[in-house]
Design a protein around this nucleic acid. Structure first.
Lengths: 149, 149
DNA sequence: CTTTATGCAAAGTCTTTGCAATACG
DNA sequence: CGTATTGCAAAGACTTTGCATAAAG
């Protein structure tokens, strides 16, 4: 690995803890399918994928896995806090490998999600959560449309 | 009408322009169903409803209307800019009668949407839209969970 | 009258579930 | 070996569509 790759130290450090161990720590048996899906999810940095997209990637990577298993696995990963669901309008559910507070562009008409460079947005005056509730997450989605003319 | 009702001057002013006219201005024929649905949507101030909820309200209000028509109508209203789609995770699509930039609480596990009192949130440092794109809308969804203990 | 809207039922998506076969520890 | 997981196909939820009937202008 070249020195210039050290910018990804965070990702590398995560990789140090093997996927198997991470899964086991969540109480999930490290099966072939779960390992493969986790590899696809976490190997390439932050991603936001639909079930269908991840399923296709798995098939292309010669990891036979059923669609139902991808659904199950993504929900298990979500419960385990490894990924989170992305709140975007529309039919599809996106899963995001970045579980920290960050935000997204959503391109209308194209159903495409883009990351907003981190920390670009400052949110002030967050309201209090109602009684008995606490804030789990703040989602900012900036909906984009194609400029006419 | 009592004087104390004047606090709803905004809503009243909107009501001055009859629903029929508003619909016609959008190129929508003011049919019995569309008028009734618009009445339900706009008579009570800002609302966020699912198709199913609006359908039930219509039935309860003795306005026989089919579910398909509610779907069609809400999408027509959305295209016309009378309402907008609310970007919240999950199976259901919410339609919001408030088309201006404002934000929402979403109660996890209960699929409940609450308005955040207007102007409570300040967003700074909005990123530039990518080339050829413009910002259509900024959505902030604050996801709430029940506090434990 | 002509055009547009409605309602129904059928078809389409996306997602979940039940259960036998399989893999993990 | 016993238990958890997978895959399949069937079922389920939500939404859209096609077409005959009805309503609006």
């Amino acid at each position: 690995m070249s020195q210039t790759d050290m910018g990804r130290a965070g990702a590398m450090a995560e990789a140090m803890i093997s996927i198997e161990t991470r899964l086991r720590d969540c109480g999930l048996r490290p099966t072939r399918q779960r390992i493969a899906l986790a590899d696809l999810l976490f190997a390439k940095g932050d991603r936001h994928l639909t079930v269908e997209e991840l399923h296709e990637e798995a098939i292309e990577a010669d990891v036979p896995v059923s669609l139902a298993t991808v659904y199950n696995t993504l929900h298990q990963f979500t419960e385990a806090g490894l990924i989170r669901v992305l709140a975007v309008e529309g039919a599809r559910t996106y899963f995001d490998t970045n579980t920290s507070d960050h935000h997204h562009f959503f391109v209308e008409g194209r159903n495409e999600v883009l990351d907003i460079p981190v920390n670009n947005i400052a949110i002030g005056n967050l309201p209090e959560a109602p009684d008995g509730m606490e804030i789990a997450h703040v989602d900012v989605v900036i909906r984009l449309r194609e400029k006419k003319g």
